[in-house]
């Protein structure tokens, strides 16, 4: 039995050294950073102590969108993933961070994440309903649909709910153009969300 066991161990060791995924001819994936395309504002002095505490939850999204791959749609009702383009962060997590940065820059809110240690006055819950490159036409548009809910934590009541939708044309019919359009769409939706929050105070 011992020769068979030694042979099996050698086979397993050799199998671990084999790299089936090494495809020297395949292009390397490109990682894109989802960003707020609005020009950076000067740093705020911070919100005053009397400003309400706004708890911003992480943005949720469907499992297909909340992945590292960029999503496209060649025909209505279908979705696909770019094979050689990746997001550096999942869109849901990244969008929530961009949202907190935007609100922090205003100085009208004391923005916190849902860490569980701070009692908030209001809470903002967002969901990415659509987040993909509509490639039914060339070069297509990047479609972003965001649903937001503003909740009064003291009264446990819903202050308002709104859906923001934005289609941004692509500059080029590829993943790079889709990433740039996603950034502009994100900036536009953040602008609308910003105005809506200011009007809800």
């Amino acid at each position: 039995m011992k020769p068979y066991l030694a042979l099996a161990a050698c086979a397993l060791a050799l199998a671990g050294c084999v790299n089936f995924g090494d495809q020297p001819d395949a292009p390397a994936p490109t990682y894109y950073v989802l960003d707020d395309a609005t020009p950076a504002r000067p740093a705020s002095q911070g919100a005053p102590d009397a400003a309400p505490v706004l708890v911003v939850l992480d943005t949720t999204a469907s499992a297909f969108y909340d992945a590292d791959a960029l999503v496209f749609s060649r025909t209505p009702g279908t979705r696909g993933q770019y094979q050689f383009a990746r997001w550096t962060e999942r869109p849901g997590k990244r969008f929530a961070n961009l949202l907190r940065n935007r609100l922090d820059g205003q100085g009208a809110w004391r923005v916190v994440g849902a860490g569980g240690y701070v009692r908030g006055d209001w809470m903002l819950d967002t969901e990415l309903v659509e987040f993909y490159h509509d490639a039914t036409q060339s070069p297509g548009v990047f479609r972003l649909v965001l649903r937001a809910e503003l909740i009064d934590l003291g009264q446990r009541s819903l202050i308002g709910r709104k859906v923001f939708a934005r289609d941004v044309p692509l500059a080029s019919f590829d993943a790079a153009g889709a990433a740039q359009a996603a950034n502009r769409a994100t900036a536009a939706v953040l602008d609308e969300l910003d105005a809506w929050l200011a009007s809800s105070r």
């Binding site: 770019y82 297509g140 790079a176």
Partner: peptide
């Protein structure tokens, strides 16, 4: 797809196989 990479139908706009 893991072992040999994506097929042509899985590629996105602007993507191509060598």
């Amino acid at each position: 797809a893991i072992l040999f990479g994506p097929v042509q139908q899985q590629l996105g706009p602007g993507e191509s196989l060598p």
